[in-house]
């Protein structure tokens, strides 16, 4: 079964651009985004059937110029999302989160990893998750490949396809699957 075939025709389809956030309205939706060094945190409130997703590009808002969009930053976008759920009457203890992205797009995995933007984004996300006391279920981060992510916020499912660097840089949202690891 492919990622696309899991999406029912009647579901609302949304494409999440970098620096955007999305909170579902309770109805069935499929939210697609494409990640390189950026990170997405997918939120799900199981009892309420609601979900939300961020797409942070840079690790921290502190030190950014006035007027910079909070959605661009990993820490501020996560904090905004938690407050948005709280405004809907959902405490952070009811939220389950999954973390994706943070690829090291400009180098080889393992080399100079401490300085890559992808890793800094993941460090910032994990720190914010810990500071806010969120329950992290899954983390699939790092590597030297992009990820096409499809999130079903009403059920909290996240489906991932690896995509090549060239697909990512050419803005190809429908990236090719690269399951080369399992060729042997």
């Amino acid at each position: 079964m492919t990622m696309e075939s899991r999406i029912r025709p009647e579901w609302e389809r949304i494409y999440l651009k970098p620096a955007e956030v999305h909170i579902s309205n309770g109805g069935p939706q499929a939210v697609t985004t494409v990640l390189g060094s950026c990170v997405s945190l997918c939120f799900h409130a199981p009892r309420a059937g609601l979900g939300g997703i961020t797409h942070g590009m840079l690790p921290r808002q502190a030190g950014a110029k006035d007027g910079d969009d909070w959605g661009r930053f990993v820490d501020s976008s996560i904090t905004w999302m938690v407050r948005a759920f709280e405004k809907r009457g959902l405490a952070r203890s009811q939220l389950e989160v999954k973390l994706f992205g943070g690829a090291q797009m400009h180098g080889v995995a393992g080399s100079r990893s401490a300085t890559s933007v992808g890793r800094q984004n993941v460090e910032s996300a994990l720190k914010t998750i810990k500071d806010l006391g969120l329950h992290l279920l899954v983390s699939e981060v790092g590597g030297t490949w992009g990820r096409k992510l499809v999130f079903f916020p009403h059920v909290g499912e996240v489906w991932i396809k690896k995509i090549s660097r060239s697909s990512l840089y050419h803005g190809v949202a429908n990236g090719q699957e690269t399951h080369t690891r399992h060729d042997r």
């Binding site: 890793r119 993941v122 460090e123 329950h135 279920l137 899954v138 983390s139 699939e140 996240v158 489906w159």
Partner: peptide
């Protein structure tokens, strides 16, 4: 966070699931 970073950026793990977990989470990962 240090364990999660260590696993995926230093050791070479592809993913990290925290226990306790649901069967569906393991299967989807």
């Amino acid at each position: 966070p240090e364990d999660i970073l260590q696993a995926q950026y230093h050791c070479g793990a592809d993913g990290y699931v925290t226990k306790p977990c649901a069967a569906s989470t393991v299967l989807q990962t």
